[in-house]
Write a protein that binds this DNA or RNA. Structure first.
Lengths: 345, 345
DNA sequence: CGATTGCTTGTAATCGATTACAAAAATAAT
DNA sequence: ATTATTTTTGTAATCGATTACAAGCAATCG
C-alpha cells in the first residue's frame, strides 16, 4: 500500500503550502495561521504522512532516546523503578534504551560513547558504582548535565540524584524494634562500598546511639543484599554467645534468606528473633511470617528521576533539585513481635 | 574540545581519499585497498571521528533498534529473559527499546506505528496477548516477518516463537509426584486465555490420563500466576472433602502463595501436601520449604529469541526455525515428599 | 500618506553518511 | 601489444525534516 514513504514534500503539495509551513505546523502550531494549520492537518490525514525520526534527529542533532543503566535486570527491585521511568518517557518523544551493567558483554563499551555517538540525549543510572574514569569522561565531554542517578548514586561526583531516605528507613526500623522492647539489635549490611549499605548502616548506628542501645561488634554482619547472604548470617547468629533478639536487614532478600536460615537452626521468627527487611518487595507479604519491612516508593522514584532528567535536558520547565529524597514508611507485618520476657536461667 | 562534529568529509580530507572510500572502508573493508584502509584508519584515530547514527539510519532507511514488549517489567521472570535478549543485541549495532504492556500510558499508541515511524527494525514480544487488530495491522503493513514471540505467543497467528516446552514441564511435575506415590493431584492454573495456562494444563491432563490418575473437577483451581491466587487456593483446598495430596502450580509465585496459605490452614508442606511450582525463580531455593519446581532456561530463551529475530532481519545467516522449543528440567527440593501412608480412619 | 512593526510564508541550505554511476587503474587473457 | 576483466576510486545525488533568511502583506502609528 503505502510502500513509498510520504514526506513533508508530499504533504506540502497537497496542502498547497511550503515544506517550511508543514514543519512549523507540526512543531509549533502557533507560528502558523489558522488556515494553513487546518490545510496541513487535512493533507496529513489524506496522505497518511508519518514523520521520519531519523531525519529529524539528524537535523536537530539529537537522539530522541535516553539510556537507563540497571545493575541487574533480573532483580525485580530495579525493574520496578524502570517501570516508573518508562511511564514518564512514554508520554514524551524519547525512547528508552536499557542496558544491564552486570552484563559483561556490555561492559567494554564506554558509556560516554553513547553520548558522543549521539545515540542518547540523557542517562539515568540505577547503578551507583560507575568507575571514576567513566565519571570523569562525562565531565570532560560536558555531558554531566544530562545524567541523573536514581536509587543509588555515586559519592565520587555530585550529579543530580533521586533516592529514598535510607537513613530515615533505618531509623524507622530501629525505632519500631525499640518500641517492641528490643535492645539487642543486629544488622546485616549490604555489600561493602555500596552507598545504600553505608546510608542504612549509618542511619541504624545513629538511631541506636540516640536510643542508647547496647552495641557489639559481632552484631554487624556483612551481607550483600542477596538471599544467600541472609541465609549464611543465620548460622553466624545461631552460634553467638550473646544472641541479638532482633535483626534489621539491609534488604528484603537478606531478610528472607535469614528467616529461612534461622528456621534451619531451630530459631523461630518472630518468637525468638524479630526480623525487619528493607524494600518491601512484592513477595514480602507472602513470606512466612509476612515480613515487616521499610517500604520504598519504587515507581515514584523512577518517575521522579525521569522528570528530573527531562527538566535537565530542557524538555521541561521544571525545577532543578539536585538531590531529591523520597520518604519511606514502615510496613508492619508479622516478622516482628514484642520481645518475649527473657527466660529465667 | 571536539565540539564541532568530525564528519566523513574531514576523515576523507585527512586520509587523502573520497568520502565514498571512507564509508566503504567502514562498512565493508574488503571493498577497499589495503592502502586506503590503513589511511582511513589512521585518519579516523587522528581526527577522533565518530559515525553519526542518525545520518546512517536516514540514508539506510532503518532504525538500528528493536522493541521488546514486556507484559510486566516488575516481574523478575520477564526481566531475566530481557537479560538474555540484551546480551545478544549488545554485540550488534541494534539498541533495544523496552516497553511495558501493562503500562496504560503506552497502551494507546499503536505498535505498528513503531515500525511505520521507522523507530524500530524488529520486535520481540514476551506478551502473547496482543490484540487481533494489532496483529492484523502487522500483517497488513507486512512487518510480520520482523517479529518474534518469546516465552508467550499468540495462538491467533503463526509468527515465529521461542518458548519453553511447557507440556513437558507439566509431565515432569506429574511424573515426579506419581513416583513419590501421589495419585490425587490438584492443579492451580494460570489466568484464563493465557497460552501458558493452556499448555501447562493440557500437559498435566495428558500426563494424568496416561498414568490413569483419578480426576475431580474440584482439583482444577483457577489462578492467575500471582502470589495471592495461590494464597486463596489454599483455603479452597483446605475446605475440600476429598483433599488432594499434591498440587502442581502453574507458577512459582502461585506455589509460594499456596504454601503460605496452607500453613495458615494448619496444613504442612510437604508432610500433608506436596507442592510443585513452575519457573524456578531465584527465591524458590530459599522458601520454606525450598520449592520443587520446573526450571526454565530464561536467559537462553531470551538469547534464542534475539538470535531468531536477527536472522529474520537478515543480520544473521541463520536458520529460520519458526518455532523453537527449549527443554525444561525438574528441580527437586523439599516441597515434595513421599506420600505418607493414609491415616486409618 | 509614508514609515514602522508584526505576522505569515516560501526558498534553499543544512544535518552526515551512503551508494548509483561512471571513470580510472590494475590485472588477466588472447 | 591489445583487449577484456576486475578492482579501486571519486563525484554527486540522495535520505527527509528543520530553519536561517528574506520577502510579502496587513495593521498601526505619527
Amino acid at each position: 500500500m503505502d510502500r513509498k514513504a510520504v514526506t513533508v514534500q508530499d504533504v506540502a503539495r497537497v496542502a498547497g503550502v511550503s515544506t517550511a509551513t508543514v514543519s512549523r505546523a507540526l512543531s509549533d502550531p502557533n507560528k502558523v495561521s489558522e488556515d494553513a494549520r487546518t490545510a496541513v492537518k487535512n493533507a496529513i490525514s489524506a496522505t497518511g504522512y508519518r514523520l521520519n525520526k531519523a531525519a529529524r534527529n539528524l537535523r536537530k542533532q539529537q537522539a530522541g532516546a535516553v539510556l537507563i543503566l540497571v545493575p541487574n535486570l533480573g532483580n525485580p527491585f530495579f525493574s520496578q523503578i524502570l517501570q516508573g521511568i518508562s511511564a514518564v518517557f512514554s508520554e514524551t518523544e524519547f525512547s528508552i534504551l536499557v542496558s544491564d551493567t552486570s552484563d559483561p558483554s556490555e561492559r567494554d563499551l564506554n558509556l560516554v560513547d553513547y553520548f558522543l555517538d549521539r545515540r542518547i540525549d540523557g542517562l539515568i543510572s540505577l547503578d551507583g558504582a560507575l568507575s571514576i574514569s567513566e565519571l570523569e569522561l562525562f565531565k570532560h565531554h560536558s555531558v554531566d548535565d544530562r545524567i541523573v542517578f536514581a536509587c543509588e548514586w555515586s559519592p565520587l561526583v555530585d550529579f543530580p540524584s533521586v533516592r529514598s531516605n535510607n537513613a530515615m528507613g533505618a531509623k524507622l526500623a530501629i525505632q519500631h524494634l525499640y518500641d517492641l522492647g528490643h535492645r539487642k539489635i543486629a544488622h546485616i549490611t549490604g555489600p561493602e562500598g555500596n552507598v545504600l549499605t553505608r546510608e542504612r548502616r549509618e542511619g541504624m548506628l545513629q538511631a541506636r546511639q540516640k536510643l542508647n542501645l547496647p552495641t557489639c561488634a559481632e552484631w554487624i554482619i556483612r551481607g550483600d543484599f542477596s538471599l544467600n547472604s541472609g541465609f549464611l548470617a543465620a548460622q553466624e547468629i545461631a552460634g553467638m554467645d550473646d544472641r541479638p533478639t532482633a535483626v534489621f536487614c539491609a534488604s528484603d532478600m537478606v531478610a528472607i534468606g535469614l528467616i529461612s536460615g534461622l528456621k534451619r537452626e531451630g530459631i523461630s521468627v518472630p518468637n525468638d528473633i524479630s526480623v525487619v527487611g528493607f524494600d518491601d518487595i512484592e513477595i514480602a507479604e507472602f513470606c512466612d511470617p509476612p515480613l515487616t519491612t521499610i517500604k520504598q516508593n519504587r515507581v515514584g522514584l523512577g518517575r521522579a528521576a525521569a522528570e528530573q532528567l527531562l527538566s535537565q535536558m530542557g524538555a521541561r520547565v521544571g525545577k532543578p533539585d539536585r538531590i531529591l529524597q523520597l520518604d519511606v514508611q514502615i510496613q508492619t507485618r508479622e516478622s516482628t513481635a514484642v520481645l518475649a520476657p527473657s527466660p529465667v536461667d
